[in-house]
Simulated scan of single mutants.
Amino acid sequence: MISVQTLAIYDTEISSSIPPEIGLCSELRNLYLHMNKLKGPIPHELGKLQKLTSLLLWGNSLTGTILPELSNCSMLVVFDLSANELSGQIPRELGKLTVLEELHLSENLLTGPIPPELSNCTSHSDSA
C-alpha cells in the first residue's frame, strides 16, 4: 500500500497518459494533474480512490468518456475535468457524489442532457 495523500504534478507539460497504477495509492486524498499535456483515457483505476476529495485534471488532452466508476470516489468535493477532449454523456452515476461542491466539465465534447441525478449532490456547479 502506498500512503501518499496528495499528488501534485501540474503545469509541467507532462505528455504521457495517467498510469493505471495510480489506483494503488489508496490513501490519496488530492490529485492535482491539471495544466499538463496528459492524453488518452481516464484510467478505470481512479475509481478505486475512495478517499479522494479533490480531483483536478483540467487543461489536458484527455479523451474518451467520463467513467461511471468515478462515482466510487464518494468523498469527492471538487471534481474538475474541464478543458479536455472528453466525449459522450455525463454519467448519471455522478449523482452518487453527495458531498460534491464543485463539478466542472466545460470545454469538452460532451453530448446529451445534464443528468437529473446530479441534483442529489449537496451543492454543485456544473459547467457542462
Rank of each mutant, 00 (worst) to 15 (best):
I2L: 13
D80K: 02
P68E: 00
L97Y: 14
N72V: 05
S74V: 14
D80R: 06
F79T: 00
L94D: 02
M75T: 02
E45Q: 14
L118V: 09
E45K: 07
Q5H: 03
I22C: 10
S106H: 14
L110H: 13
I9F: 01
P68N: 02
K39D: 03
Q89P: 06
I66W: 04
D80C: 09
K48V: 04
K37S: 14
L28T: 06
T63P: 06
E101F: 05
I42Y: 03
G64H: 05
I18M: 05
N108Q: 10
P41V: 07
A8F: 13
L62T: 06
L94T: 03
L31P: 10
S26A: 14
Y10D: 07
N72D: 05
L97H: 14
A83C: 13
D80I: 05
G59E: 07
H124Q: 03
L94K: 01
M35W: 14
W58N: 02
P116S: 09
M1D: 13
P113Q: 05
I66K: 02
L70W: 01
L55D: 00
P113I: 04
N60F: 02
P116I: 05
Q50H: 15
I22Q: 12
S17L: 10
S127K: 01
E21F: 11
L110E: 13
I42H: 05
L38H: 05
N84Q: 12
L56Q: 04
M1Y: 14
N120W: 06
L31D: 10
I66C: 05
N84S: 12
L57K: 02
K39I: 04
L52H: 14
E117Y: 05
T63V: 08
G95D: 01
S87T: 07
R29E: 15
L100A: 09
K51Y: 12
T6R: 15
E45M: 07
V4I: 02
E69W: 15
I14M: 04
V78A: 00
G88A: 11
S87D: 03
L76K: 06
Q50R: 15
N84H: 13
M75C: 10
A128T: 03
T111C: 07
G112T: 08
E85K: 15
E107F: 00
S123P: 04
E101L: 09
T65M: 01
G47P: 15
E85V: 10
P91Q: 10
V4P: 01
L86R: 00
